[in-house]
């Protein structure tokens, strides 16, 4: 029994790398006005399309270069992280609350509740998600809250399906029957006995969902459907970078790298957390 636990004792490098990147990006976003070297909105046509620091023609203070309006890319990425993280946390939590609640009810009570919820999930998943998101934001109007709502409305099914399946598995276990015999109420059993056993999966999904929310927000910004056009967003920067790819590749490449690193880190972090939360794997 001790061999089973030994390999999990230390914090895995995966958790370190993913967590490290997320912490760095999060702190930079929170303290953006302090850490960003330049004003992200300041245009200066004298400084347009400066290359990153290791190339000829780079200016000190503009580490990752500038875009075609002369705005500092690093500062824009740092400020863009603010919206990315706000959307990530708010949308993932909203998605999780809706999806996990319905999944738990569906999986634990079965019968009618399960049939109705499962049918809704099936219908929901028939829509292509990106198209769905664009449609929703077009209807709700652009803005931070509509992006968050759109993500929750589209993606709750991911939580619902996984949590339903896990809850069903747990509900068949004898400990649930034992709790019934002892006289616990149904809702009490669902919350006190079953829920703790699906928490590891919820945590993993939550982290994954944060990554997905970052991507969806970027896609919406990319098609100019997200937040106001003034504040820099990663998707917005990518959209601008695409236009000037031949003159200034860095305006496209750096935000893409930032996005991919963040999304990957969220999913890896979630997996690593799951194993830490799980008493059997821990």
């Amino acid at each position: 029994m001790d061999e089973r636990r030994a390999p999990r004792r230390g914090v895995s490098p995966r958790l370190w790398l993913a967590g490290g990147w997320l912490l760095l990006a999060l702190l930079a976003a929170i303290f953006a006005p302090l850490v960003a070297p330049q004003d992200p909105l300041a245009q200066d046509l004298m400084l347009e399309r400066l290359p990153p620091f290791w190339l000829d023609g780079a200016e000190p203070g503009y580490w990752l270069g500038t875009d075609s309006l002369g705005r500092d890319l690093l500062s824009r990425l740092i400020f863009g992280g603010r919206i990315a993280f706000i959307v990530a946390f708010a949308a993932a939590i909203a998605t999780c609350l809706v999806g996990s609640t319905l999944g738990l009810i569906s999986g634990y009570f079965g019968g009618w509740a399960d049939r109705i919820i499962s049918r809704i999930v099936d219908v929901w998943m028939a829509f292509p998600p990106v198209l769905f998101a664009i449609l929703l934001v077009a209807v709700l109007g652009t803005g931070l809250s509509s992006v968050i709502i759109a993500i929750a409305v589209i993606d709750w099914t991911r939580f619902c399906r996984v949590i339903r399946a896990e809850t069903m598995g747990q509900s068949r276990m004898d400990y649930v029957e034992n709790a019934r015999i002892a006289g616990y109420g149904r809702i009490g059993i669902m919350l006190r006995e079953v829920l703790p056993n699906v928490v590891p999966s919820i945590v993993a999904l939550l982290s994954l969902e944060m990554g997905i929310a970052v991507i969806v927000e970027a896609i919406l910004s990319f098609v100019n459907l997200s937040i106001s056009t003034d504040d820099p967003t990663w998707g917005g920067i990518i959209a601008e970078g695409r236009i000037s790819i031949h003159q200034a590749w860095w305006v496209l490449v750096f935000p893409l790298i930032t996005l991919i690193l963040t999304v990957l880190s969220f999913s890896q972090f979630g997996e690593a957390l799951k194993t830490r939360f799980d008493p059997v794997l821990r």
Partner: peptide
Amino acid sequence: RRTLIGARTALIPQDPLTALNPSR
């Protein structure tokens, strides 16, 4: 009925692993 059964009876189950809550 639940209260009566809960107070007067108990079960010793067949499979001692799944009869205990793994996360508590």
